[in-house]
């Protein structure tokens, strides 16, 4: 179980997270949703131990602050939002970077298998920098998968922490990536994903955590949390959660073009006249 208790994060005196509690269970996809700037990514970065924070983050009851870098790396892999690469490495070289000696490291077939899993079999010797944004994102996912290739290791669940994993992908690859996450969870691994797409969230997430303004608004099973009221309140616009026949899948649509509450000054567009006199 991945658990965060009373997490507070400040950036330059401004609080990005205020006393957030969060729990994710292995065997599930836990989605973190919420509007821009609500603290989703900051919460994920607190879970990875990347940002300084008050409160505790624990992995199977062990405080991660007391765990060594390699211990954490053996238990969880992190997919960042943007992934720049400094030098012209090939795709397979990037994926191999995820291998950790002693866990997946011994198995030389893992990087190729991970590439095949994300649909990039023939790309091993291509230069990473020559790929499109979506392909780069999938290479990064393959690297992350290679790091925790076996979802359960030495009897303990391993974790995928994904920051907007489908952000730059087309619809088919969005389904591919979310399918990978679901398969990882199905065999006992844990997945925490920061999501923007509420419909994909409804389709794949088991548990949903809704954030707004640095606080946790609601957390629980998808069907209980994804309601008109909770989402409309969090996002500041009228949203309607429906069930679509004939597949009875849940989907979310805005039911009005109007914002329901103030999300900042919204001056109407007008012709701007600049005074050039001097």
């Amino acid at each position: 179980m991945l658990q965060a208790k009373n997490i507070t994060v400040s950036f330059g005196g401004k609080k990005a997270l205020r006393g957030v509690d969060f729990t994710a269970q292995p065997g599930q996809i836990t989605a973190i949703v919420g509007p821009n700037g609500s603290g989703k990514t900051t919460l994920l970065r607190a879970l990875t131990g990347e940002v300084e924070h008050n409160g505790t983050v624990s992995l199977d009851s062990h405080d991660i602050a007391g765990m060594k870098g390699w211990e954490l790396a053996a238990r969880r892999a992190v997919l960042p939002q943007a992934a720049a690469l400094a030098f012209p490495f090939t795709v397979i070289e990037v994926v191999r970077m995820g291998l950790f000696g002693g866990t997946s490291g011994g198995d030389a077939t893992v990087p190729s298998a991970a590439l095949a899993r994300v649909g990039l079999s023939g790309y091993a010797d291509r230069l990473y920098q020559e790929l499109s944004g979506g392909e780069q994102q999938r290479v990064q996912l393959a690297r992350v998968l290679a790091q925790v290739w076996h979802p359960v290791w030495q009897g303990a669940a391993r974790w995928l922490l994904l920051d907007e994993p489908v952000a730059s992908l087309d619809i088919a690859h969005q389904l591919l990536v979310m399918g990978i996450a679901r398969d990882f969870a199905k065999v006992g691994g844990g997945v925490v994903a920061v999501m923007h797409d509420l419909n994909l969230t409804a389709m794949f997430a088991d548990t949903v955590a809704v954030m707004a303004a640095g606080q946790m608004v609601a957390q629980g099973p998808m069907a209980q949390v994804m309601t008109d009221d909770t989402l409309s309140h969090a996002y500041g616009c009228g949203l309607r959660v429906s069930v679509a026949p004939p597949m009875t899948s849940t989907f979310v649509l805005p039911h009005t073009a109007q914002l329901t509450h103030d999300i900042g000054p919204l001056a109407p567009f007008s012709a701007v006249r600049t005074n050039t006199g001097c």
């Binding site: 990875t48 990347e50 969880r76 990037v94 970077m97």
Partner: peptide, 17 residues
């Protein structure tokens, strides 16, 4: 090598950055 992915990712991979 891992640093080429950025400091944060190097840390996630388990490098004592």
């Amino acid at each position: 090598n891992a640093m080429a992915l950025g400091e944060a990712t190097a840390h996630h991979i388990g490098i004592p950055v």
